[in-house]
Amino acid sequence: MTRPITVVTGGSRGIGAATCLRLAADGHDVVVGYLRDSRAAEAVVSGVREAGGRGLALRVDTSVEADVERIFEVAEEQLGPVTGLVNNAAVTGPLGRLADSDTATLRRVLDVNLLGVLLCARRAAQLMTPRGAGVIVNVSSGAATIGSPGEYVHYAATKAGVDALTLGLAKELGPDGIRVNAVAPGVTDTEMHAAMGDPERARRMGAAVPMGRPGRAEEIAAAISWLMSPDASYTTGTVLRVAGGR
């Protein structure tokens, strides 16, 4: 059987990197989309190859239409028809109240977390619809339903948009044989917290979760991989919460 070919945005670290490795272990060839850290992306590609898959690292700013067009074009040229997309790339900006957030941060969060997801999903749909098959998994967040006051309500708002996109696009593309789902992680132990300016946040917040700890990137990746798999063949329009009970 032909291996699925899956594009993973934000694939060089955290949940994205874990997803690339899990998908490769589960039989996918993987395009590792990254923005800045080419060395980290190439390390993930090495892991994909060690797991038996073909891997390709491509730079992409998902908020830029030309970049999105290019990553899919190169993926199809070098690996073959893209069968899956994991819309994972996202940014938060510094932690803080909305009243204290600058406009440039708000604009960047909206551009990457919502416009970027829309651009990638649109391109995937354009390619998959004539083929009558495909899978899209969007990475949302538990923040979409709790609002994250005092931390990043702007980020939470974009993730609520991702949830709405997931539902609407699943209904739109279902007749074309394309499934669209989302995974909504809770607090997860990744580099994101240090980037927000609070390296201890995952440990501190995890203590208040019913399971008493933060999630691991590999646990989120397992949920994504299941939604990408034939085992989830009748699952679409679902936002799967992986948040330790919170």
Rank of each mutant, 00 (worst) to 15 (best):
T2F: 09
T2H: 10
R3F: 10
I5R: 14
V8R: 13
S12R: 13
G16K: 07
G16Q: 10
A17N: 10
C20I: 10
L21D: 06
L23M: 15
A25H: 13
D26C: 13
H28K: 10
D29P: 05
D29V: 07
D29N: 13
G33V: 07
Y34M: 07
L35N: 12
R36Y: 11
D37L: 03
R39N: 10
R39S: 15
E42K: 03
G47D: 08
G52N: 04
R54C: 09
L56A: 09
A57P: 11
D61C: 03
V64I: 09
E65G: 02
E69N: 06
I71P: 00
E76S: 11
E77I: 02
E77Y: 01
V82C: 00
T83A: 00
V86L: 02
N87K: 06
A89T: 06
A89G: 03
G93L: 03
R97D: 00
R97L: 03
L98G: 00
S101E: 15
S101H: 04
D102F: 03
T103N: 04
T105A: 08
T105G: 01
L106W: 12
R107W: 01
R108H: 07
L110D: 11
D111R: 09
D111V: 04
L114W: 01
L115A: 06
L115R: 14
G116H: 04
G116W: 00
V117G: 06
A121G: 14
R122A: 14
A124V: 06
A125C: 03
A125F: 11
V135P: 02
I136F: 09
V137T: 14
S141Y: 05
G142N: 14
A143K: 11
A144K: 15
T145W: 13
G147L: 09
E151S: 12
E151T: 14
A156C: 06
A156T: 10
A157M: 11
T158L: 04
A160P: 07
D163C: 03
A164P: 01
T166W: 10
T166K: 11
L167T: 12
L169Q: 06
L169P: 03
K171R: 15
L173A: 05
G174D: 04
I178R: 01
V180A: 01
A184Y: 07
A184H: 05
A184M: 01
P185G: 03
G186C: 05
D189F: 00
H193T: 02
A194L: 05
G197P: 06
D198E: 13
P199L: 10
E200V: 04
R201N: 07
A202P: 04
R203E: 15
R203Y: 00
G206I: 09
A207E: 13
V209C: 02
V209Q: 02
P210F: 11
M211T: 14
P214T: 06
G215C: 04
A217M: 05
E218W: 08
E219M: 07
A221H: 04
A222W: 05
A223I: 04
I224T: 11
S225I: 04
W226N: 04
W226T: 05
W226H: 14
L227A: 12
M228V: 08
P230R: 15
S233V: 11
Y234C: 12
T236V: 11
G237R: 12
V239L: 10
V239G: 12
L240S: 08
G244M: 10
